[in-house]
């Protein structure tokens, strides 16, 4: 039984990884063939780094992800503080609306924002491009920040804030010194989640970007639409490497932390 289980896990992992490894192998292929490996080369990587569209859309993606995640972290954290002190009914309403971009299919969110931007574009001086992309990214990022920060308030002792004020802190100082450190883990994980969602998003960007401001996923999409180009394989390999490195580092840090917590007898 145990053996069967291991074989099963192995098969699923194969299903998950074989396509990626095939991409990686063919990124070193001399010819454009996607099925016959004829010789080893780094040409596609060279071409990739000289491809201005890819490089500029990569930079664009990073700028948008950084801006969107920072703005949505601030907006979302403030929102969570406010929502937390709301009465039951308005709180439920706001949280339900906040959940909508998460529950709704991405294509509907993308299309609805596109309708709004088209409306504004016709009446004001708004063009599809960097600004619309940024707004769209903030819009789907903020809910994740709120979702990550809200539970931290539940875990916090509500009297701490009052106690700090009783002990002579002003409201602002009490907030910075007492509340903020308590909710910080949620803020950080919200930021990271927003950042990765922004980096990775294709569907919503696809509907809200103009021709002037492209993100990397959009560029990848238009590359897959055109002829076969092993540059995509090279790009996949690099992205895969980055993902592996980041996740392994994250894993090592978490394991160390877990061990340390165990040593101190904490949960």
């Amino acid at each position: 039984m145990k053996k069967l289980g291991k074989i099963y896990i192995g098969l699923v992992l194969m299903f998950l990884y074989v396509p990626i490894f095939v991409l990686i192998v063919f990124s070193f292929n001399e010819t454009k063939s996607r099925s016959v490996f004829s010789g080893f080369t780094f040409d596609w990587y060279e071409k990739l780094f000289r491809n201005e569209i890819i490089i500029s859309s990569l930079i664009n993606t990073i700028i948008i992800a950084v801006l969107a995640s920072i703005i949505s972290t601030i907006l979302g954290t403030l929102a969570a503080i406010g929502i937390n002190s709301m009465k039951k009914f308005p709180k439920a309403v706001v949280l339900n609306v906040t959940n909508m971009p998460i529950i709704n299919p991405e294509i509907v969110t993308g299309v609805s924002l596109m309708l709004l931007f088209v409306f504004f574009a016709a009446r004001m001086n708004l063009e599809f491009g960097f600004v619309t992309l940024l707004i769209a990214h903030i819009t789907f990022d903020v809910p994740y920040v709120i979702l990550n920060v809200m539970p931290k308030f539940k875990q916090m002792n509500p009297h701490l804030y009052e106690a700090a004020q009783d002990l002579g802190c002003g409201p602002f100082k009490a907030f910075v010194k007492v509340v903020l450190p308590e909710i910080m883990p949620g803020v950080v994980s919200g930021f990271l989640m927003a950042f990765t969602y922004s980096l990775d998003d294709f569907i919503i960007s696809y509907f809200t970007s103009g021709s002037t401001s492209q993100t990397l996923p959009i560029t990848i999409y238009s590359m897959t639409r055109r002829k076969v180009s092993p540059e995509i394989n090279a790009l996949s390999t690099l992205i895969f490497l980055v993902v592996v490195v980041v996740l392994v580092i994250k894993h090592v840090i978490e394991t160390k932390q877990a061990k340390r917590n165990e040593a101190y007898g904490r949960d």
Binding site: T196, I220, I239
Partner: peptide, 29 residues
């Protein structure tokens, strides 16, 4: 936690690339 990381890792690749990988595998040639 290690296994979970291994299982979730492909998820972190952009899904366009993941789908593109299958285009390569399934193609007529």
């Amino acid at each position: 936690s290690t296994m979970l990381m291994i299982v979730m890792l492909p998820m972190w690749m952009n899904f366009l690339l993941r789908t593109y990988a299958w285009m390569t595998l399934l193609g007529n040639n």
